[in-house]
Amino acid sequence: MQVQTSWISRWAVPLLVVAGFAVAWAIPRYQLINPYYELILMYVGINIMLTVSLNLVNGYMGEFSVGHAGFMAVGAYVASVLTMRVIPWDMAGYLYPLALIGGGIGAGVVALLVAIPSFRTRGDYLALVTLALNMIVKSVIENIDAVGGPRGFLVMLRLTNLPWVYVWVIVTLWVIRNFIYSNAGRGVLAIREDEVAAELIGVRTREVKLRAFIISAFFAGVAGGLYAHLLQFIHPRNFDILKSTEILIMVYLGGIGSMMGSVLGASIFTVLLEALRFMGVWRMALAPLLLVVLMILRPTGIMGLKEWRGLIPLDERLRLWRLRARKGGSASAAGN
């Protein structure tokens, strides 16, 4: 049975992406909004990258990684060293994406260190491994004098702007979406449901885990690079456990196993913290209380394993439609 797809369902998302880029390009070019709001938009974008990439490991694969800021730190420092020390200054503007990718690769290499113990341990023990990795990364940076050690590292070039953040957010969403709906991605979901059963039906669990960890860490590293070139001063304390905790909260606020959830979770949390800034210290007391209330009322987060249709690949949507048509509309086909 041939399923007809409407023009809208085929082109809506690509058009939205292009329109979004036009807006992201126009805002700094013509100073359409207050620079403060522009800054918040950039933080939202960076947090979306961190949240979606952590959701791949924690939500889709069902592991419990609690040290995501460690990967971010590696990416931030590698990218900053590349733009400040390696790439000539007059070229830095053009080669900036390469520096970010370098940071992502650095974070990916560190992810190997996490992936190997994850072959043997799961759940709460893996939490410990990632936690320790976060502390080790911070401690190592504090002991490298060439990047300022505990004094911090001055990144003199403000290379991050809204169009770049936007492009990287779209790349992150696109790559992770395609990964999840690929063969390896089905393996990731199978590992979440039951690792032993996944292995029995022929999922190469080691390889799949390795890939998921590396992709997740890569985008955390790129986000770290963007963050460094926005803040212009990085410090090991920027990447401590508290930062990891914030990313975790954004993931579970939005809902695990949902990219739209991560986008919403990161946006809401970042904007809420800014909106509460007038409360001073007390905002960080109020925000977690709101989170606790939300968790009690809705334990699976905002989206909770559901996905916005626009983030599901078209042929996957068609497959689900066919499935529903064959079963007479009884099967629920809302993503997942």
Partner: peptide
């Protein structure tokens, strides 16, 4: 996550 929130 609730525990993390309570901690903060």
């Amino acid at each position: 996550i609730t525990a993390l929130g309570i901690g903060i």
